[in-house]
Design a protein around this nucleic acid. Sequence first.
DNA 1: CGGAATCCATGGAGATACTG
DNA 2: CAGTATCTCCATGGATTCCG
Lengths: 133, 133
Amino acid sequence: MSRPRAKLVTNFPGCPVEATLTYLDGKWKGVILFHLMDRTLRFNELRRHLPAITQRMLTKQLRELEDSGLISRTVYPVVPPRVEYALTPLGTTLKPVIRALAAWGDEFVFCSPEGRELRIAKALNAPAAEIQA
Amino acid sequence: MSRPRAKLVTNFPGCPVEATLTYLDGKWKGVILFHLMDRTLRFNELRRHLPAITQRMLTKQLRELEDSGLISRTVYPVVPPRVEYALTPLGTTLKPVIRALAAWGDEFVFCSPEGRELRIAKALNAPAAEIQA
DNA sequence: CGGAATCCATGGAGATACTG
DNA sequence: CAGTATCTCCATGGATTCCG
């Protein structure tokens, strides 16, 4: 009797871009996968990487990623409990995608120092000609 | 008196992956950008590419992409109206990201023929060893 | 043709409390 | 430590109508 498997539904059958984004749905999953690219992480380690997420949401996102087959969940029968999350082989195939996302954010987006507002990097508000090249 | 500019807010300051995903927020924007990669498209041309989207949502997503500086909106003062959407120079910098998303979806996801349910391609449900390589 | 305006239902997500 | 279980609320997005 396992948990019912979540169904992922697309609005645009046949669109590979949307298919991928459906698996990264929400804004949390991408970040979770990003941190799992480096190494296996425990539940509370992930929480520390995602300061704003609630326990409930983290659990939910992890379950969905697990259902999708992108991450694995390993429970060690010890006290206190120890649960580790890691990329599955399928999950590792996403690395180039995650890296592409990270690279673009790194290059073009910055965050107002004190706040959380995102802005396009100054360099790209320059006249089009400079960028077109 | 221009429309107020939408503020993009992040939950994880300093995370480039989430920054990028914030700009692709929702599942529609990625698809819109994907289609604009090839060529400029008019409003109703985009609708035809996105059969499931409502007029209201398409307008909203296009406005947000415009606010982000990723696409441009050109109104031709003719009757009947003609409005064209295209990638800006900044938008074109997203092409590698969109291509990475499309490539992964192409390789690993398929859609049940009649429905809209997404599944991982059979090949990847195979034993890990086969994929790890 | 390409929207804007309005109304409304749904569920995504926060806060809080409890547990093996 | 790593989760459930409720309750609640508000934003997201659908349907419909009207407009330059």
